[in-house]
């Protein structure tokens, strides 16, 4: 049903998978995500649809290995079936001609940023993208982002590629030289928190795409809830995009750590089992 058609490594820990899912390919819009489960002991995790190809009936996911569930997905090979894949979920990105866009992507957040940049460019915006990661090998999709941007600034924490510095420094550079009408921020929670503070300081309307813990992805459990503008919202059905200046990022980061001990244990257990299998 949901066969892996092709696989590409961006780095040891970041993989892109093209998966057969004709209905989802047809129905999805920029900003949508899917819930994925691998194997009968697997967990359901949310992943953004990076791109889709309606003719081939496929969607592409870009996955970073961070724990047991993302690891299992990156270990899928061409021809393997994804046990469960459901979507497209969430609200699509609101696209219009805003003027000049500052698109900020940190780490694997560049994957969900790509379709948004593409749509915003198509809608007539001038797009300046700032993509950032800890080091060179973690910069992904640079060429694809370039294809749909008027300008791209690459930042690495260690200076191994592009400019050395945090994403906020790259953002400041752009903001100081030209008027930005709208910012889009996607990346790790901590990066989004500081990127949002930066645009807030300059009064630039900003949206952030949140990556909370999810179970069902359809509004049923409330695991994904987050406070936005003082109100509780469900990221899976009300989001994943929200006004970045209204999001309580500290609460989000706190809730993301809610299961950390179990997550580490599950990953260690899985690694241990697969190592033993390798020996046998």
């Amino acid at each position: 049903m949901n066969k892996v058609i092709s696989k590409h490594y961006y780095s040891e820990n970041v993989v892109s998978l093209e998966i057969e899912a004709p209905r989802i390919a047809k129905a999805r819009r920029a900003g949508h995500f899917v819930m994925v489960r691998v194997g009968n002991t697997g967990e359901r995790i949310p992943l953004t649809i990076s791109t889709a190809n309606v003719e081939r009936g496929t969607i592409t996911l870009v996955v970073q290995k961070v724990g047991v569930s993302s690891r299992k997905i990156t270990e899928l090979e061409v021809g393997d079936e994804v046990t469960d894949l459901v979507g497209p979920l969430g609200q699509a990105t609101h696209v219009e001609n805003f003027g000049t866009i500052l698109a900020c992507g940190g780490g694997v957040g560049v994957a969900p940023l790509l379709p948004i940049v593409e749509e915003l460019k198509k809608a007539g915006n001038k797009v300046i993208s700032v993509i950032a990661a800890r080091s060179k090998d973690l910069i992904i999709l640079e060429d694809q982002i370039r294809q749909h941007s008027d300008e791209v600034i690459v930042m690495t924490d260690d200076g191994s590629y592009g400019k050395k510095g945090l994403i906020t420094e790259g953002m400041e550079e752009v903001i100081n030289r030209e008027k930005i009408d709208q910012a889009v921020i996607i990346g790790p929670g901590i990066m989004m928190k500081f990127a949002a503070l930066t645009t807030k300081k300059h009064n630039i309307p900003s949206i952030a795409s949140l990556n909370t813990i999810m179970v069902d992805g359809t509004g049923m459990c409330g695991a994904c809830r987050v406070t936005v503008g003082g109100k509780t919202r469900f990221v899976c059905v009300d989001g994943p995009e929200f006004d970045a200046h209204e999001v309580d990022f500290d609460e989000m980061l706190m809730r993301l750590s809610g299961y950390r001990e179990d997550e580490i244990k599950a990953d260690e257990q899985y690694l241990c089992v697969s190592k033993n299998k390798g020996k046998a």
């Binding site: 509004g219 049923m220 459990c221 409330g222 809830r225 809730r255 750590s257 809610g258």
Partner: peptide, 22 residues
């Protein structure tokens, strides 16, 4: 009727507070 209701009281989004559905 799968959507959980909350009470909208302070602290409801703390870690360790969850819906029965979850």
């Amino acid at each position: 009727a799968g959507l959980p209701r909350f009470m909208n009281i302070p602290g409801e989004n703390l870690v360790g507070v969850l819906s029965s559905n979850e």
